[in-house]
């Protein structure tokens, strides 16, 4: 375990527990156009974006396990979809390292889509009596839209919590590229 890992793990545990409790105790009761915001796939995606695929996947697994336990649901269901969401966001960072300001929103929307659609598919496979209906599609769509709107604040919060424990902050990394010989697009003209 590297020196900074302990601090990062502690911060991830606190972040996961606080956001899960907030989601269960408050956000899930706030209905917007028949659906709720879901902070958890956003947090998992944000952790994936900031810390990489392995941390994202492990964080997703742990958060899913916590939620399934707290709501006395079928265990492993949320874990499975959040593992995929966290791993996907982390791989995006490792392969592309996107820097655009809208990336957290796009990744949040993608993670929400993976989580809601994946959860629905797994429920159908388990035989839950809720066939594909216009209401289900509407709920999935509204959840994705609402989550897209709140993705940036969740990303900013996650980043603020994790930043002191991160070995390489994306913002610092980008600045370093200009300071060590990389040419700014403006200087080429």
């Amino acid at each position: 375990m590297s020196p900074g890992t302990g601090g990062l793990v502690l911060r991830l545990v606190v972040l996961g527990v606080v956001l899960s409790v907030l989601q269960i105790a408050a956000v899930s009761q706030l209905t917007i156009f028949g659906a709720n915001a879901d902070l958890l796939p956003l947090a998992v995606a944000a952790v994936g974006l900031l810390c990489g695929s392995m941390t994202g996947a492990i964080f997703g697994f742990a958060v899913g396990l916590f939620v399934d336990t707290a709501l006395v649901q079928t265990m492993g269901l949320s874990s499975l979809v959040y593992v995929v969401a966290g791993y996907g966001a982390g791989r995006l960072r490792e392969l592309r390292d996107p820097q655009a300001a809208l990336v957290p929103m796009a990744v949040g929307a993608g993670a929400t889509a993976v989580a809601t659609v994946g959860y629905s598919v797994l429920q159908f496979l388990l035989g839950v009596d809720a066939p594909i209906s216009l209401l289900l599609l509407r709920q999935v769509l509204v959840t994705i839209i609402v989550n897209t709107l709140v993705a940036y604040p969740v990303y900013a919060l996650t980043r603020r919590v994790l930043l002191p424990a991160l070995p390489d902050d994306p913002r610092r990394r980008r600045r370093r590229a200009y300071a060590t010989g990389g040419l700014s697009p403006l200087s080429r003209s």
């Binding site: 695929s53 392995m54 996947a57 492990i58 997703g60 697994f61 899913g64 396990l65 399934d68 079928t74 265990m75 492993g76 269901l77 874990s79 499975l80 593992v83 791993y87 797994l122 388990l126």
Partner: peptide
């Protein structure tokens, strides 16, 4: 290899939990 092993472990753990719980 380590990354893939961790991913596989997490997915398998989820499926085992899901099966046991269901």
């Amino acid at each position: 290899r380590r990354r893939r092993a961790v991913l596989a472990l997490l997915v398998i753990s989820s499926i085992v939990l899901l099966t046991a719980s269901f």
